[in-house]
């Protein structure tokens, strides 16, 4: 029952041009843009030297997961709530968890597919390494990150008053973080307060953990336990808030 729900979410998603474009194509466009502009430059992050493309592939992977999970959830679930679609489902015997599972699993599968495409394009066009020894670290980071950003997106819907406000609020909460979290631009000596703000939120830790997994010099399995702990903490906070405040009824 829950698995079939994933299938229906998937079909709906691909037939909605706006959702498919913003969630799917935008990260790919950014990947090409940033790599074309800065791919050949040498960067130094946290004292480690790396190619521009080695920075941008994990950066765009982070962006893709955030947009497929956090942004997608925040917007689409709010719209479904405001249209009364959630209420309609709540009146059927489908268990609420199964509906939410359908949404979550779809978003996570979507981000996984995006990651595969991004890594493939990165390797083919920009010569970035495909992680091998760090694959376990990469997989755990991706799963944990995707799940965390999904539940944070769900929790966010509780403070979004209406479908009209959904794009503005989701983007306003996530875009600034993407800029200060080594996703779009490598931060070279940022002001301390900005670095601190970035450290508090999960995006920077997610990007950092991914950088490690993608860096060719990384030895071992590629786990960044410190970063993963921060992401997991946010995941727990998000889950608690979502369970407590999530609403199935349209707001009036």
């Amino acid at each position: 029952m829950a698995l079939r729900q994933v299938g229906y979410e998937n079909r709906s998603f691909w037939r909605n041009p706006a959702a498919a474009f913003f969630t799917f194509l935008l990260p790919l466009i950014f990947l090409v843009l940033f790599n074309s502009l800065f791919g050949d430059s040498k960067l130094t992050i946290d004292g480690r030297e790396l190619d521009g493309s080695t920075f941008y592939v994990p950066g765009i992977v982070a962006l893709a997961v955030v947009s497929a999970c956090y942004t997608n959830m925040g917007m689409m679930v709010t719209i479904a709530r405001d249209n009364g679609i959630l209420k309609r489902v709540r009146g059927t015997p489908l268990p609420p968890w199964a509906y939410i599972f359908g949404r979550l699993a779809h978003a996570m599968l979507l981000s996984l597919l995006l990651v595969v495409i991004i890594v493939g394009v990165g390797a083919a066009a920009y010569g970035t390494d495909v992680p091998t020894n760090t694959l376990p670290g990469l997989a755990v980071t991706l799963l944990l990150g995707a799940a965390t950003f999904c539940v944070l997106g769900l929790a966010l819907t509780a403070v979004i008053p209406s479908a009209d406000a959904a794009p503005a609020i989701t983007n306003a909460t996530i875009l600034p973080l993407l800029f200060i979290s080594n996703v779009f631009i490598p931060l070279q000596d940022p002001p301390e307060w900005l670095a601190t703000v970035g450290d508090v939120f999960p995006v920077k830790h997610f990007a950092a953990a991914l950088q490690t997994a993608f860096h060719p010099d990384t030895t071992g399995a590629g786990f960044e336990w410190g970063d993963l702990a921060v992401i997991a903490a946010w995941g727990i906070v998000g889950t608690v808030l979502a369970v407590r405040f999530f609403s199935w009824e349209p707001r009036r």
Binding site: R11, S12, R15, N16, G84, I85, K87, R88
Partner: peptide
């Protein structure tokens, strides 16, 4: 059947 129709538009 609720007062306002609410069905996923893309199925």
């Amino acid at each position: 059947v609720l007062q306002s129709t609410s069905i996923q538009p893309y199925l």
